[in-house]
Design a protein around this nucleic acid. Sequence first.
RNA 1: GCCGGUGUAGCUCAGUGGUAGAGCAACGGUUUCGUAAACCGUAGGUCGUCGGUUCAAUCCCGACCACCGGCUCCA
Length: 695
Amino acid sequence: MNDESQPQPANFEAAKSDVQRKTLDQREQMNELMRLRHSCAHILATAVLRLWPDARLDIGPPTDEGFYYDFDLTHRFTPDDFPKLEEAMRQITKENQVFEKSIKTQAEALAYFEGKGQKFKVERLADIPEGETITFFQNGEFVDLCAGPHVMRTGNVKPGGIKLLRVASAYFRGNEKNPQLQRLYGTAFKNKEELDKWILQQEEAKKRDHRKIGAEMGLFAFDAEYVGPGLALWLPKGAVLVEELEKLAKETEFLAGYVRVKTPHLAKEKMYKTSGHLPYYAESMFPPMELDEFAAERQVLRKQIAVADHRIREEFKSRHPINEPGSSISEKAFGNFMDEYIDEVMHGRVTPSPKDEALFTELRKLTTEEARLPLDRYFLKAMNCPHHHRIFAAEPRSYRDLPLRLAEYGTNYRYEQSGELFGLMRVRAMNMNDAHLYFTPEQFADEFRAVNDMYLKYFKIFGIEKYVMRFSTHDPARLGVKFVNEPELWKQTEDMVRNVLIESGINYVEVPNEAAFYGPKIDVQVWSAIGREFTIATNQVDFAVPARFGLVYKDRDNSLKTPLCIHRAPLGTHERFIGFLIEHYAGNFPLWLAPEQVRVLTLNDDPALVEYAKAITAELRAHFVRVEGDYSADPVKAKIADAETAKVHTMLVVGQRDLEAGGVSVRLHGKGNVGAKPKDEAIADILAAIRERRA
RNA sequence: GCCGGUGUAGCUCAGUGGUAGAGCAACGGUUUCGUAAACCGUAGGUCGUCGGUUCAAUCCCGACCACCGGCUCCA
């Protein structure tokens, strides 16, 4: 985007992301509900100004969920304010004010908002592209800079269809360097019935929340006190999910020619300096562990350094009258001056006086000595690629070895900001479904296509129908700044990626300027069953970092070449993917994934019957089926209720009749009794469904 | 990290300035029953943590921690 011609905001940072403003055409296409919600945002602002006339306004757009409006005012909104705000909003709808549009010049608009002290509106004015018409909308006493569109009158909004939801904070223009505004979220529907329906849906969605189901089913736990926030503990039933997922991935990758590797959870500082993650990624990494084998020597040297430093200061002081009574130079100012002076001399930018020279020589000698004492810093790995690069480097490679596909579900540790943690979806220790593919440029298209095919294969297994691939590309104007300066490689790889996407008929969107610094990438966005959107998988081309590690293979012509690399994680992290699956299936997993696949229930505790049931359980267990038995004398209704609550996939109920017939009666979770069949047939069905990973 | 909210038994929730209850789950008994809940009993909590106010704090105040909803960030 070319922003240079636009008036620049004076005091605030520009928007952080390059999100496009809506064009006027796009705005005209806003549907009925969006118009309604947009108008509600104005009604909310009207209400806020009635109650707090000194509020400063930012913007108030509609969203998929409702609408919001950002305010700056000294009063802090709390949910206690909602009833009176909602009441004021209802009043405004009853006043049935007309939304009146008027066209303004930049100067008129500027004068209006400056006159009102609405500094955020003044900033927003500067965002409007030159030549675009500036419009105001007025309803009653409230005037807003707004491109519309709106409903005709405030009365079109039904009082019963409005609800304020929450108060949050938001940075002005979404940039954390800007002031924080108070954001009021609300929603609006055509009428009360629609709103109530939505509220009901929200409640249903809550029941599907992976955190709730995870606790109910005993899948995972967090122990912030002893283990730490964002560090999931997989309970036995949840560990089953991890293992099944890994088993699927291992089989899939084995068939696709991957080889497995294992690497440690930490590495020395040099690793991440070489990869480029330090210092740029340092904030997202756990602080390093320092191993100081020479702590005692270091301590002695540091004391000597302090003495030498002090001598220089005293010597300097003795030659200058700064410590005499009446001197205008404070101790602190002198200290600052000396800090700078010593620093300058030590860096060779200033030559000390001959008198100081000897003292500086001593200081230099000591600091050099200290610097020579090795200090090892180890970092927990935030990604696996550097370790895999070192595996590539561990043996000489020939073009005959390529493509080399190294897979490992390594645990990565990322120091996510505390406010970011979110159940399993955002954690601090995660198992990446990771692999790094090293190959020649000629092999690129095949490798990339194969990775995409793998995604699609997985999506099919899990019944993921709604997804978007975000294809992030570079910006040629920022080569050498944000992106490595390899215009040809960028063009080639992006073209190849684009072709693969088009040929495969994959639903994708291209996002310029969002590539990684080392290459284009594809992120896969999915929506969980309760509407949560997140990135599940990533597939990145890397034509820069292997070179930083000096990775080479010997080509046909006996020359050394740097391989291309793909970094791919089709299941993302196992934490997030399982969080997604829990919501996707609402905890009702297909048989192959179900933590407890089968439970054998007896009608009573008659010894012969129990013996029969135990034999069935043992047979299933011998086939590695996760099966439990409930042989108690409790009523079968109660035992079934227990099994249903536990979301056991298949229940085999056995009574006297089944014992005599050598059969079982099969009941499926959520589907009820599906009838009796011979025991061997039932077991064969179960084994086949598991083997085929039937949905 | 920032803004707002929340924190009582394993879970869902009552409750009060005078050191706490219910249902379900758990445990012990009884119950012998054909597809979603049989009965009786027992046990279980320093009311998130630490300070403060008070004769007395789970309740009032403060700080911290964690979680929830957002912002920013991200797999």
